[in-house]
Write a protein that binds this DNA or RNA. Structure first.
Length: 429
RNA sequence: GGAGAGGUGGCUGAGUGGUCGAAAGCGGCACCCUGCUAAGGUGUUAUACGGGUAACUGUAUCGAGGGUUCGAAUCCCUCUCUCUCCGCCA
């Protein structure tokens, strides 16, 4: 959520900023809802004050055994007016939050103007991205390779669950598991993260705090019969919600959390896209990185987080590039987002494998997550940063495609071999 | 799933209808005292929102939501979470 006071005072600037995210701010509506709410608040508070004073007076009179009926009547009168005001206030607050919770985060000035991913700007390529060499080999799609090895299946998965699910067998399943472990190990050993094992089912509030709700309910799987649970679309949700209602001392920050978790997305609106393979599944594993930091350090912290994610790609020797998302492609809650895109030889294209964002105080305001500023001695909202480090399914797909040899086998990257009983390649089943 | 107990400030914990936003202790902070340390003394110390340059001030909050009452931490109802015992279970 953005700061309503800031919005009120900078409404023109904010509104033109949000327009870059294709959000049209209804300025008049906001000003009206905002001032209605404020007026109702002060009106009800005034009445409550009167009521409190009179009630106290009644208490004093009762002690002295004096008559209180006149005052009681008066309070009763106030109560009936107050009730109306309070009802109006509840409605007004609902309107206000409905509106505020649907306003996206303000964009960082560095975000380039643009409509879609076509307008994203490439920052740099990895050192090993000699793609002419790779792409000329005519490598097959990872799902084809996996199938011909007899280690990947899509059809049976469909009959078990439906579309956008898959089965991995044998050493391919093992490689998938190895990848998750390798990523988490790297982050906890080299990057000072605390590993967290998180709930995969979360409640409505948690999703509201991180910004998936109320706006993006369609993208989530909801569990209805037992309780109002949602399956997490990313470990960002439980990890970030660890900070809810916290007030940190400055010494406690930064906090780095990482978690390997399964993620669930409905992929509504992406019918027909990436229907084969591991790229777009209803269920996938991902290693998530989350930072809680002070506002001054959030910019630097995002860069650090990106380096942590890049480290995995570098260790796996996968070609990739770093992209700064344009305004139209930047997510609802983010102020700035960098994607890491890995080279997929079969598609002759870079595909997103990590998305790293600074959410500034947007999530913190919803979470009520603050820290005590040592200098100002005031409680200020923290900043939250997160990114994937990395999406495991997509990384596996990238490895299959980039590491296949002439025989259709998959060479196992050096760093993963210790996790695979020192196996060197995956051969046909 | 069955039976019971309980949720009060950073923590421990008192408070069963009226200056209770809440005693006391611990912790934190500030100052004082002692040559240093240890100990001691005094004061201060919740959060959100609103008004005010500020000192300050108003409202709400004692798990959440309703209700009773002129007045609720305290009484009633519903929900929720935690703990203990039994059962079941990876």
């Amino acid at each position: 959520m953005i700061d309503s006071k800031f919005l009120r005072q900078n409404i023109e600037n904010v509104s033109s900023n949000l327009l870059k995210k294709n959000y049209e701010l209804d300025k008049e509506y906001f000003l009206k809802v905002d001032s209605d709410r404020k007026n109702l608040i002060s009106e009800t508070e005034e009445l409550q004050n009167k009521k409190n004073l009179l009630s106290k007076e009644i208490g004093v009179l009762k002690l002295k055994k004096l008559d209180t009926s006149t005052l009681s009547k008066e309070v009763e009168n106030i109560n009936s007016v107050l009730k109306n005001k309070q009802d109006a206030l509840i409605l007004s607050e609902e309107k206000y939050y409905d509106f505020m919770l649907n306003i996206p985060n303000i964009l960082d000035d560095r975000v380039p103007l643009g409509k879609s991913s076509d307008d994203n700007s490439v920052i740099n390529y990895s050192d090993n991205d000699d793609l002419t060499k790779i792409s000329n080999k005519g490598f097959s799609d990872h799902s084809v390779v996996g199938k011909s090895l007899g280690l990947y299946d899509h059809d049976i998965a469909s009959s078990i669950s439906g579309s956008r699910f898959s089965l991995l067998f044998g050493s391919l399943a093992q490689l998938h598991r190895a990848l998750g472990s390798f990523m988490v190990d790297t982050h906890i050993n080299s990057h000072k993260y605390t590993e967290v094992n998180v709930p995969l089912l979360v409640n409505n509030d948690s999703l509201t705090c991180t910004g998936q709700l109320p706006k993006f309910k369609d993208d989530l799987f909801e569990i209805k019969n037992k309780k109002d649970f949602f399956l997490i679309p990313t470990a960002e949700v439980p990890l970030t919600n660890i900070f809810q209602n916290k007030i940190f001392s400055e010494e406690e920050l930064p906090i780095y959390y990482t978690s390997l978790s399964t993620c669930f997305r409905s992929e509504a609106g992406s019918y027909g896209k990436d229907t084969k393979g591991l790229i777009r599944q209803h269920q996938f594993d991902k290693v998530e990185l989350v930072h809680a930091v002070t506002p001054e350090s959030s910019d630097e912290s995002l860069n650090l987080l990106i380096k942590h994610a890049e480290k995995i790609l570098n260790l796996l020797e996968l070609p990739y590039r770093k992209v700064l998302l344009c305004s139209g492609d930047t997510g609802f809650s983010a102020s700035i987002t960098y994607d890491l895109e890995v080279w997929m030889p079969s598609q002759k294209a870079y595909r997103e494998i990590s998305s790293c964002s600074n959410f500034t105080d947007f999530q913190a305001r919803r979470l009520h997550a603050k820290y005590k500023n040592k200098v100002s001695k005031k409680k200020e909202y923290i900043h939250t940063i997160n990114g994937s480090g990395l999406a495991v399914g997509r990384t596996l797909a990238a490895i299959i495609e980039n590491y296949q040899n002439e025989n259709g086998e998959i060479e196992i990257p050096d760093v993963l071999r210790p996790y695979m009983n020192n196996m060197k390649r995956i051969e046909s089943n």
